[in-house]
Amino acid sequence: MTVTIYHNPLCGTSRNTLAMIRNAGIEPEVVDYLSATPSRDALAAMIAQAGLTVREAIRSKESVFAELGLDNPALGDDALLDAMVAHPILINRPFVVTPAGARLCRPSEAVLEILPSRQAGAFTKEDGEAVIDADGQRVPKNG
């Protein structure tokens, strides 16, 4: 069983997702996608497997998004994928791929939908939000 996370260690959501994978007793393949960018075909396949459009998988908050004019609705998937491969900071993160599927794990708890094993114990995000209780069960969201 292989679990792969396309990870940016500077991103809190990515760090929380990685920690939840490890909390399930899984040591994933960690791909620093900024330096080991997936191929265009692999990226397109992962986005499709996650049930997203390319536009949903692009990180529009990055300055290079505006600089390249990627907000132009006339740009198709090919242009967006080319930009993501050329500028991997544009790939939204973290993507996780398991035998059960692929997800863009925003929020990080989305990873729980595709992990092959349950959480081994309590898990609290970096910001202090409790996600998993001591019995390995999801903590209900407040409000």
Rank of each mutant, 00 (worst) to 15 (best):
T2E: 12
T2L: 08
T4F: 09
Y6G: 02
H7D: 11
H7P: 02
N8K: 08
N8T: 01
P9V: 12
P9R: 10
P9K: 11
C11L: 08
C11E: 06
G12D: 09
T13L: 10
T13S: 13
R15T: 04
N16Y: 01
L18D: 00
L18V: 09
L18N: 01
M20Q: 06
M20A: 11
R22F: 05
I26Q: 02
I26E: 00
E27R: 07
P28L: 03
P28F: 05
V30K: 04
V30S: 07
V30A: 04
V30I: 15
V31L: 08
Y33H: 11
S35L: 14
S35E: 14
S35D: 14
S35Y: 10
A36N: 15
A36T: 15
A36V: 14
P38A: 11
S39F: 03
S39L: 10
R40E: 10
D41C: 04
D41K: 05
D41S: 12
A42Q: 10
A42H: 08
L43W: 02
L43V: 09
A45D: 12
M46F: 00
A48C: 07
Q49Y: 02
Q49K: 11
Q49V: 09
Q49M: 12
A50G: 02
G51N: 09
L52Q: 08
T53H: 13
I58G: 00
R59H: 03
R59Q: 01
S60D: 07
E62F: 03
V64M: 02
F65I: 06
F65M: 05
F65K: 13
L68Q: 03
L68D: 01
G69D: 03
G69M: 09
G69W: 04
L70K: 05
L70I: 05
D71S: 14
D71I: 08
A74R: 14
L75Y: 04
L80E: 00
A83G: 08
M84S: 06
M84F: 03
V85C: 05
H87G: 06
P88G: 12
P88C: 12
P88D: 08
I91W: 09
I91R: 00
N92R: 13
R93I: 01
P94A: 13
V97S: 10
V97A: 15
G101D: 07
G101N: 13
G101H: 12
G101E: 08
A102F: 02
L104Q: 02
R106H: 07
R106A: 07
S108D: 11
S108I: 10
S108E: 07
E109D: 13
E109G: 11
E109T: 14
A110T: 07
V111N: 00
V111P: 01
L112C: 12
I114G: 01
I114H: 00
I114D: 00
I114N: 00
L115H: 06
S117A: 15
S117P: 06
A120F: 03
A120Y: 08
G121K: 09
G121H: 08
G121Q: 03
E129R: 14
E129Q: 15
E129I: 14
E129V: 14
A130I: 11
V131A: 01
I132L: 07
D133E: 10
A134T: 15
Q137N: 15
R138Y: 10
R138W: 09
R138M: 13
V139E: 02
K141D: 14
K141E: 12
K141A: 15
